[in-house]
Structures are given as C-alpha cells and as structure tokens.
Design a protein around this nucleic acid. Structure first.
Lengths: 226, 226
DNA sequence: CCGCCATTGACACGAACTTGTCACACGAAA
DNA sequence: TTTCGTGTGACAAGTTCGTGTCAATGGCGG
C-alpha cells in the first residue's frame, strides 16, 4: 500500500482529497500548514506528496524547495495543487522540478488518476493481462506461458515465479523479494523451496533456462534476450 | 544524453518538436506513423516517447497499448500529444497509463519542460541503483560492475569494497575506514584480509588496477581517471 | 468414499564458490 | 641493511546453490 502526504489548509478540500485517497486504499497523512507538512514528510517519507501552494506560514514553493534539499525527501514525487494554474505558473513550477500540476477546481476522479499515474511512474507496477518479452509470452489470466510460440505447461507456483521474473524487467530479484512476491512471506531461513522451484522452472524452460541467471549471495536475474 | 522518439504525422508539428528537442540536446528519432513508431521504439528503446493520437494506419491508442505489452518498451514514459485534450479524454488516457498529456496547440517551451520533468522522474528510478564514475559503472543491486562497458563479475565483498572506493570521490580511505565500511568493524590487528581483497579486486579490474593506489602507512585511494 | 496423480514444500547431500587466515616474499623508507 | 608495511599464493572453513528424493496435500474421477 502506498502512503501519501496531503498538505492543504482548506479543511473542506483536505477532507475531500483524503476521503478519495482512502477510498482508493492509500494510507494518508495530513498537514494543514507548511511546517507541519515538512515535518511529516521527513518523519514518514511518503510515496507521494500532494502540496497546496497557498499555505499559511511557509508557502508551497518554500516547502517544495526544502523538500528537494533533504536527501531523504528529494526523491518523493510532488503533485502541486493550486488555483494559479495558468501557463506561466505551470512553467515556473515545472522548471522547479514539480512532477505534476493540477489547477483548482479539480475533478476528484482526475486527481486520483494523476496520483495513480505518478505512483506508477515512480514504481513500475503493471496491470496488463498479457505480457511479451523477447521469446517469452505470458497470459496472466489463463496461467499460460509461451516460449517462441510453443506453449509451456506450468504449475501455479511456477507460473507465479516466471511472471515475477518477466515483470522484473531484468532487475535483480533477491531471494527475500522472490519469496515475498511468490509465497507471500520472506522467511529466508526457509528451506530450499525457492531453489527447487527455480530448478523446476529451468527444466521446463529448456534451452531458455540460461535466461534465469543465478547471482550468488544475492538472488536471481532474468535475461529475456539470451 | 537522452534519446526521444517522436511519433507524429503532421510534418510541420513533427519538425517543430524535433527542432526544439535537438536544440535542448536530445537525440531524436522520428516516425510518421504508428507502425514505424513501434518499430523504432523496439529498435532504439528511447528514454521517452512523444506520441500523437491521430495517426495514419495504427492509431495512437493502439500503439500505446502495444508499447505496454512489450517489457522492453513498457517502462518508457509516454507523453501523449493530441487535439482531443478535454477532460474525458485525459481521464481515459491516464487510466490507460499515459504519463503525460498535452493538448494542441501547445507551447514549445512548456513541452520542453514537460519532457524534462518526465525524464527527471523516470531517471530517479534507475539513477540511485546505478552509479558511474569515469570508466566505472556500478549496478548497486546486481553485484555487477562494468568497466568501459565490459562486465566484471564481483563477489559480494569485492563489490562492497569497489562501491566504497567509487563513492569515495577520490578521497584517501584509511585501512580503519575501509574495514569499518566493508566489514562493519575496524580491528586493525586483523590479518591480511583487506590486502587480500584489494588484491583480488585489482586482479578483476585488470588494466584499471592502477586506479587503486596504495598509500603506504595510510590506506588506499581510488583514482577513477587513470 | 476411495485411490490416483499432480503439485508442493521440505530435507540431505554434494558441488561450487567465497572468504578469512597464514606464511612468506617483496619493496619502500629510514 | 634493517625494518615495517604490503603483495601474493595457498588453504581450510564457511556459505550458498543445485539436485534427487520423499512425504503431505488436495483435486478429481471412478
């Protein structure tokens, strides 16, 4: 679940936003002024910050700048919410490094979508049903996998494992991460279950087994183009 | 330098965009229709795609969907350019996973800023995982290091050691400091562990071993540019 | 209800690799 | 030349991984 910090002084709007966010299963932190916002940001390190420009005390621009000055909060995407949404202001904001700009009044639905889009961008999450990489082709709904067009029979666990690999985009997957993704927990003291399943998957991948590379002491890496 | 693919059928607009992009030091690929765009995307794997919705042949939505189905291209942020920029269309686009929306007519300056903002956002994902200094390139999460593009296999300890050196920024690292950073303690009465690992690292660095200078009685210093 | 079979997680063991240690060689500074 | 810190090759202990195997589980048809 993602956490989002909302910094907005107008109670009505704050509530409107938070309500919508919670309804979409985000964990929400609230702040009604700039200083509180900054504190919360540094305390909770949220995944996203929705920031109003017109704030009592420290204004939005200042908050934004200070966020970018702290290494812990620098990476957090910021969505600016403001009445001053004309081109000049938008350009000024983008130049400062704002990630997203929304003018008031805004449609809650569009805001939710922009939030979703921003979070997706920062943390590549996928939702498509069918997925192709190199010679691999996976149908998420039907539990079917194809290699170079030929269908490969996989069991549920093997499929989940392959799916995680394919969706990884070549990033190294640590044992912990794989256990969490596929088995739902990460008790690394576990036995050789992961290894066994990797082995089984490799057997079924046949000639493409080489795509599953072992990184000793780290985990596994999927190389679709081998 | 970032590479950008522009898919737009109207010659004037295509030229306008490309000109602006080139002026901002991007490498630009062009495509005048959907199929060409897809090909180029899979061929060049650009850092960003600017996509018009109204295209001859395969329309923008279709192109977008197919981009998201191939893992090599799915991660590429897409900026949609369109005349249909009303709220309904924007929402539809955001639901599909569009990263950015711009209506025509657009201000070239704002387009450039949005391009910059998008690239900055996506860069964040990869930048903290990889680190480049001189000929050295380190993937923090894969235990892989590249020297002048060639891959070097390192063990966990060797990797940690090299990482400390690369992140040192050329500062002299005393033996105590290295032991603390890599091994977590600084018992200098230890045996020749540090020396051994430096030696092993040097072996794997090959010709670049000279970058690891010994400072007798003090420690080691990393010179990436040697 | 029963037995069959595929699936799954577990374990033992060996192979492959990593890592810390040592003895000793080497070489720079005094 | 002596001294002291460093480089080096070898080795043993420790880790991690691959593999064969087995028992438990649960679905399914008979």
């Amino acid at each position: 679940m993602h956490t989002i910090l909302v910094v907005e002084d107008e109670k009505d709007i704050l509530e409107l936003i938070c309500l919508n966010l919670k309804r979409n299963d985000y964990q929400v932190w609230e702040a009604a002024d700039g200083n509180t916002g900054l504190e919360q940001a540094k305390l909770h390190i949220p995944d996203l910050i929705i920031l109003d420009l017109m704030l009592p005390g420290k204004d939005g621009y200042t908050v934004f700048k200070e966020l970018k000055q702290d290494a812990r909060t620098r990476g957090i995407p910021v969505l600016i919410l403001t009445a001053k949404a004309d081109v000049a202001h938008r350009i000024a904001g983008l130049e400062m490094g704002v990630d997203e700009y929304m003018g008031k009044p805004f449609s809650p639905k569009e805001l939710m979508l922009r939030v979703k889009a921003l979070l997706r961008r920062t943390k590549r999450v996928s939702v498509d049903a069918s997925l192709k990489v190199g010679d691999f082709h996976v149908e998420r709904n039907s539990l079917k996998a194809f290699i170079s067009g030929r269908q490969v029979d996989l069991t549920a666990t093997e499929f989940k494992l392959l799916r995680v690999f394919i969706e990884s985009g070549g990033v190294v997957l640590e044992r912990d991460a794989l256990l969490r993704e596929v088995w739902g927990f990460s008790d690394n003291t576990m036995t050789r279950t992961l290894d066994t399943h990797v082995k089984r998957l490799r057997e079924k991948l046949g000639a493409h087994a080489a795509c599953l590379r072992t990184l000793r002491g780290v985990g596994y890496q999927f190389h679709p183009t081998l």
